[in-house]
């Protein structure tokens, strides 16, 4: 479904991605783990067209997308929950969800998805008329995921959904990510520093270091891989 071929990207003069290649099949959950500054978020921002790809290619359903502007990439069905959640702080919860459905014209489908996410996260229904910026971190993460679901994505990019959240909420959010993947067969590309959790939910995983991918294997195998254990699992 998504294929990165020798992808290179820069921030100014600093090379953040030094030739990334990876592949994601439809319906999979793929985790990309690595330390701070390894280039994980840049990978997602490059897929979404925010950071330009200087070299290499991004294929979505066998078509190159790396020359498209971000809004056209979103229109293809690639939705991102970026790092730090980026809730629109002065829009209400409902308006934030509306923005997720910005490109959609199927009113009944939008209504259906709205009911679905409010069932997934009942707290959002309670907070529906509150400004997004006034929600707690966990609620904002729920809203960010819901907003992305409202786009009815084919590929969902999740950047650090566990960042800054209490362990119990993190666990709850990961369960919902898995549930959503199963129920809707939506492909999920998950970027995480919390390697343990990320590899548990993943079908396959990639390990990233300094802008290159160093290891790739199934989630299970990575969890018992000696190098991964030492570097990322703290065992």
């Amino acid at each position: 479904m998504l294929k990165l071929k020798d992808l290179q990207a820069f921030y100014g003069n600093i090379q953040a991605l030094k030739g990334i290649s990876l592949e994601i099949q439809e319906g999979e959950i793929i985790s990309l783990i690595g330390a701070n500054g390894a280039g994980k978020s840049t990978t997602l921002m490059t897929i979404s067209g925010i950071v330009p790809a200087r070299e290499g290619e991004i294929l979505f359903k066998d078509k190159p997308i790396n020359k498209l502007p971000p809004d056209k990439i979103a229109a293809l069905g690639i939705s991102q929950v970026p790092e730090g959640r980026r809730i629109f702080p002065y829009l209400t919860v409902m308006e934030n969800l509306d923005m997720g459905a910005f490109l959609r014209n199927d009113k009944s489908g939008v209504k259906q998805d709205l009911e679905y996410v409010l069932e997934l996260f009942p707290i959002l229904a309670e907070r529906r008329n509150q400004a997004g910026g006034t929600l707690s971190g966990g609620e904002q993460q729920m809203l960010a995921i819901s907003r992305a679901i409202m786009t009815r994505p084919k590929l969902l990019l999740l950047d650090e959904p566990s960042l800054g959240l209490a362990p119990i909420i993190t666990k709850q959010i990961f369960e919902i990510i898995k549930k959503f993947n199963k129920e809707s067969n939506t492909t999920i590309f998950l970027v995480e520093q919390n390697a343990n959790l990320a590899l548990q939910v993943a079908d396959r995983g990639y390990v990233m270091e300094n802008g290159v991918i160093t290891i790739s294997d199934t989630g299970e195998n990575l969890l018992v891989n000696e190098d991964v254990k030492k570097a990322y699992l703290g065992i």
Binding site: A75, P82, R86, F102
Partner: peptide
């Protein structure tokens, strides 16, 4: 409020 996020939502 957030130009990058707006673009990610498909807004031109």
């Amino acid at each position: 409020q957030d130009r990058v996020m707006a673009a990610l939502m498909g807004i031109n």
